[in-house]
Computed example of a mutant assay.
Amino acid sequence: MKRTAIVTGASSGIGRECAVALSGAGWNVVLTARRESALRETGSLCPSPDTCMVLAGDVTDEEFVKRLFRETISRFGRLDLLFNNAGVNSPAIPFEDITLEDFQNVMSVNLVGPFLCAREAVRAFKKQTPMGGRIINNGSLSAHTPRPMSSPYTASKHGMTGLSKCIALDGRAFDITCTQIDIGNAATPLTARMEKGVLQPDGHRMPESTFDVAHVASSIVYLAGLPPDVSVPHFTIMASKAPFAGRG
Rank of each mutant, 00 (worst) to 15 (best):
I73G: 08
G77W: 10
G77Q: 11
G77S: 11
R78Y: 08
R78I: 07
L81P: 01
L82Q: 05
F83V: 00
N84G: 09
N85G: 06
G87Y: 00
P91V: 11
P94R: 12
P94L: 11
F95V: 15
E96I: 13
E96M: 13
I98Y: 07
L100Q: 10
L100I: 13
L100V: 14
E101K: 15
F103W: 14
S108P: 03
G113N: 04
P114I: 08
F115T: 03
F115G: 02
F115S: 02
C117P: 01
V122Y: 05
R123Q: 14
R123P: 01
A124K: 03
K126L: 08
T129L: 12
P130W: 09
M131T: 14
G132T: 10
G132K: 08
G132C: 10
G132P: 04
G133E: 05
R134C: 07
I135N: 01
I135R: 03
N137Y: 00
G139Q: 03
S140A: 13
L141A: 07
S142T: 15
H144M: 11
H144R: 12
T145A: 10
T145E: 11
P146F: 05
R147M: 13
P148F: 04
M149E: 10
S151Q: 09
Y153L: 03
G159L: 08
M160Q: 10
